Simulated assay, not measured.
Amino acid sequence: MARAVRFHRIGGPEVLRIDPVEVRQPGPEEVSIRVKALGLNRAEALLRTDRYIESPQLPSGLGLEATGVIEAVGSQVRGFAAGDAVSVLPPTSMREQPTHAEQLVVPQSRLVKNPPGQSWADAAATWMQYLTAYGALVQVAGLREGDFVVITAASSSVGLAAIQIARRVGAVPIAVTRRSAKRDALLQAGADQVIASEEEDLRSRLLEITGAAGARVVFDPVGGPIFEALTAAMAEGGILIEYGGLSPEATPFPLFEVLSRSLVLRGYRVYEVLEDAERLQAAKAFIIDGLADGSLRPVIARAFAFDDIVEAYRYLESSQQFGKVVVTL
């Protein structure tokens, strides 16, 4: 038996429980992992409130990320052995393969070895954010040197990963955050410019920064009314990549802006990368190289104990954090 985070009803963080669950032996191409740390994501809160791309089947587990030590391997596992420090890549179904537990059994295809010396907290804060940002910015948008890229929710773990990736390829990251309290931290994190959307006119500031060139790429998990300001400052043929839906307000379709500048509005999920072996291999190589040369550096907002999982999610959903919220075991 092992302990796992589950919820038996839809609701806020208070519905989360730590339940004992049975742990099976690994199959021929699977490994058993003793978990050392977890990374938290907004997607898990969406599943818990039944607003995710899949609905939970109660009682439901949750979780997209984990890192730990391999305890046992199946008979056909190659390249991994007991004692290896590994991270679990996000599953295609959080409902069917949740990660928030003391022990996991996962296919070897969903594993990546941790870089030598990487801390458990950093490992838990690596793969979801960098895979999401790399797949969207580099593989979908083709972000390149000199491009202006607008990054909303910039103080989130994915937002900070996007800033770092933009800098690594020579692009110019413009961070958008709600209030100016995080301005200095975002500049120190690599943002070229910071806009506080609740204190400044977003459209005017974007046009002031990008000038006639406009922003070729916009990377947004929010949606809602902000679309109008974002598209008004985009370059001819620019692409807006939407990877969330955090705004409770309706998202307008900016028809005139799309028509007048031939804009592309593109929905995106990290599973586009995870389900394509060639794209996943390229993403892994980029991320591992970036971790090695220091251009990619996970930012940890705060670490919580496993028994404090409710408080960890309350903190995540308060939007106070700067970077990744992790849970250690």
Results as ranks from 00 to 15, higher is better:
S295G: 09
D293I: 10
G294E: 09
A312L: 08
Q320P: 07
A303W: 02
Y315N: 14
V310Q: 09
L291H: 12
R302G: 02
E311F: 07
A305I: 04
F306S: 01
R302Y: 05
V299I: 14
V310M: 05
S318I: 12
S319V: 06
V299N: 00
V310W: 03
A301K: 06
Y315T: 10
P298Q: 05
F306Q: 00
Q320A: 15
V299T: 06
V310I: 14
D293V: 10
A292I: 12
Y315V: 08
R302S: 04
S318R: 14
I300Y: 02
S295D: 07
Q321V: 03
V310R: 05
F304L: 06
A312Y: 09
S319T: 09
A292F: 10
Q320F: 12
Y313P: 02
F304I: 04
R302D: 05
R302E: 07
F306H: 01
A301P: 08
L296H: 05
Y313M: 10
I309W: 00
V299F: 02
S318M: 13
F306T: 00
R297W: 06
L296V: 08
A312S: 11
P298F: 02
I300R: 02
R297P: 03
A301N: 09
E317F: 12
Y315H: 15
L316R: 01
E317I: 12
S318W: 11
D308I: 03
S319I: 03
V310D: 01
Q320K: 15
G290M: 07
G294M: 07
A305H: 09
G290L: 06
I309N: 00
V310K: 05
I300W: 02
A292C: 14
D293K: 12
V310E: 03
R297L: 09
D308H: 07
E311G: 13
I309K: 01
E317K: 14
R314Y: 11
I309Q: 01
Y315M: 13
D293C: 12
I300G: 01
R314G: 06
R297A: 10
D307I: 05
L291C: 13
S318A: 15
A292N: 15
Q320C: 11
E317A: 10
L291M: 13
P298C: 09
A292M: 13
D308Y: 03
V299C: 03
G290H: 08
Y313E: 06
D307G: 15
E317D: 14
R302H: 08
V299Y: 00
I300T: 04
G294Q: 09
S295T: 14
E311Y: 06
R297T: 11
P298E: 07
L296I: 11
F304C: 03
R314P: 04
V299L: 05
A305L: 09
I309R: 01
A305F: 05
E311K: 13
Y315K: 12
D293L: 09
D308E: 12
P298V: 05
P298T: 05
F306V: 01
R302T: 06
R314H: 15
D308S: 11
R314A: 11
L291D: 08
Q321K: 05
Y313T: 03
L316V: 07
A292L: 14
G294I: 06
F306M: 02
L316D: 01
R297F: 06
S295N: 12
D307E: 14
G290S: 11
A292T: 15
S295H: 11
A301M: 10
A303Q: 09
F304H: 04
D293A: 12
R297S: 13
